[in-house]
Amino acid sequence: MKVMIRKTATGHSAYVAKKDLEELIVEMENPALWGGKVTLANGWQLELPAMAADTPLPITVEARKL
């Protein structure tokens, strides 16, 4: 699914347009965010693609819901 990742004042957030859902990312498998699992505030887990740590945000990526 397409997910937009952006930086907020409190960390990172994910927006899933198909579900009209925006949630804070509360847990990251990798400190650089990319190439691992993230957990959203509502409990969803997404697998993000591997990208460079300095990838500019906001960005829309293809993520997989676990």
Rank of each mutant, 00 (worst) to 15 (best):
residue 1 M to N: 04
residue 1 M to K: 02
residue 2 K to G: 06
residue 2 K to H: 12
residue 2 K to Q: 14
residue 3 V to P: 00
residue 3 V to H: 00
residue 4 M to Y: 08
residue 4 M to V: 14
residue 4 M to K: 10
residue 4 M to F: 07
residue 4 M to P: 02
residue 5 I to Y: 01
residue 5 I to C: 04
residue 6 R to C: 10
residue 6 R to K: 14
residue 6 R to H: 09
residue 6 R to M: 11
residue 6 R to D: 07
residue 6 R to L: 11
residue 7 K to E: 08
residue 8 T to W: 06
residue 8 T to V: 11
residue 9 A to Y: 08
residue 10 T to W: 13
residue 11 G to P: 02
residue 11 G to D: 00
residue 11 G to C: 05
residue 13 S to N: 06
residue 13 S to A: 12
residue 13 S to D: 04
residue 13 S to K: 09
residue 13 S to E: 07
residue 13 S to V: 14
residue 14 A to L: 14
residue 14 A to P: 00
residue 15 Y to S: 09
residue 15 Y to C: 08
residue 15 Y to M: 09
residue 16 V to W: 15
residue 16 V to S: 06
residue 16 V to P: 01
residue 17 A to V: 14
residue 17 A to H: 14
residue 17 A to F: 15
residue 17 A to K: 10
residue 18 K to R: 13
residue 18 K to Y: 15
residue 18 K to F: 14
residue 19 K to T: 14
residue 19 K to E: 15
residue 20 D to E: 11
residue 20 D to C: 12
residue 20 D to I: 07
residue 21 L to W: 14
residue 21 L to S: 08
residue 21 L to D: 03
residue 22 E to A: 08
residue 22 E to Y: 10
residue 22 E to P: 05
residue 22 E to H: 12
residue 22 E to K: 06
residue 22 E to V: 09
residue 22 E to L: 13
residue 23 E to H: 13
residue 23 E to F: 15
residue 24 L to S: 11
residue 24 L to R: 13
residue 26 V to W: 05
residue 27 E to R: 09
residue 27 E to T: 10
residue 27 E to G: 10
residue 28 M to C: 11
residue 28 M to Q: 11
residue 28 M to W: 13
residue 29 E to A: 08
residue 30 N to P: 01
residue 31 P to I: 07
residue 31 P to K: 11
residue 31 P to V: 11
residue 32 A to K: 12
residue 32 A to N: 14
residue 32 A to Y: 14
residue 32 A to L: 13
residue 33 L to Q: 03
residue 34 W to H: 03
residue 34 W to P: 01
residue 34 W to Q: 01
residue 35 G to V: 02
residue 35 G to S: 03
residue 36 G to D: 00
residue 38 V to F: 04
residue 39 T to L: 10
residue 39 T to R: 10
residue 40 L to D: 03
residue 40 L to R: 00
residue 41 A to G: 10
residue 41 A to K: 08
residue 42 N to A: 01
residue 42 N to V: 04
residue 43 G to C: 04
residue 44 W to Y: 06
residue 44 W to S: 00
residue 44 W to L: 07
residue 44 W to K: 00
residue 45 Q to M: 12
residue 45 Q to F: 08
residue 45 Q to E: 13
residue 45 Q to K: 12
residue 46 L to Y: 07
residue 46 L to W: 02
residue 46 L to I: 12
residue 47 E to M: 14
residue 47 E to T: 09
residue 48 L to Y: 02
residue 48 L to D: 02
residue 48 L to Q: 00
residue 49 P to C: 06
residue 50 A to S: 11
residue 51 M to I: 08
residue 51 M to Y: 06
residue 52 A to C: 08
residue 53 A to P: 13
residue 53 A to V: 11
residue 54 D to C: 06
residue 54 D to V: 05
residue 54 D to M: 06
residue 55 T to P: 06
residue 55 T to L: 03
residue 55 T to N: 03
residue 55 T to C: 05
residue 56 P to L: 11
residue 56 P to G: 08
residue 57 L to P: 01
residue 57 L to G: 03
residue 57 L to A: 01
residue 57 L to M: 08
residue 57 L to Q: 04
residue 59 I to K: 09
residue 60 T to V: 12
residue 60 T to D: 06
residue 60 T to I: 13
residue 60 T to R: 04
residue 61 V to F: 06
residue 62 E to V: 15
residue 62 E to G: 07
residue 62 E to L: 14
residue 63 A to T: 07
residue 63 A to I: 09
residue 64 R to C: 11
residue 64 R to Q: 13
residue 65 K to V: 15
residue 65 K to N: 11
residue 65 K to T: 12
residue 65 K to C: 15
residue 66 L to H: 07
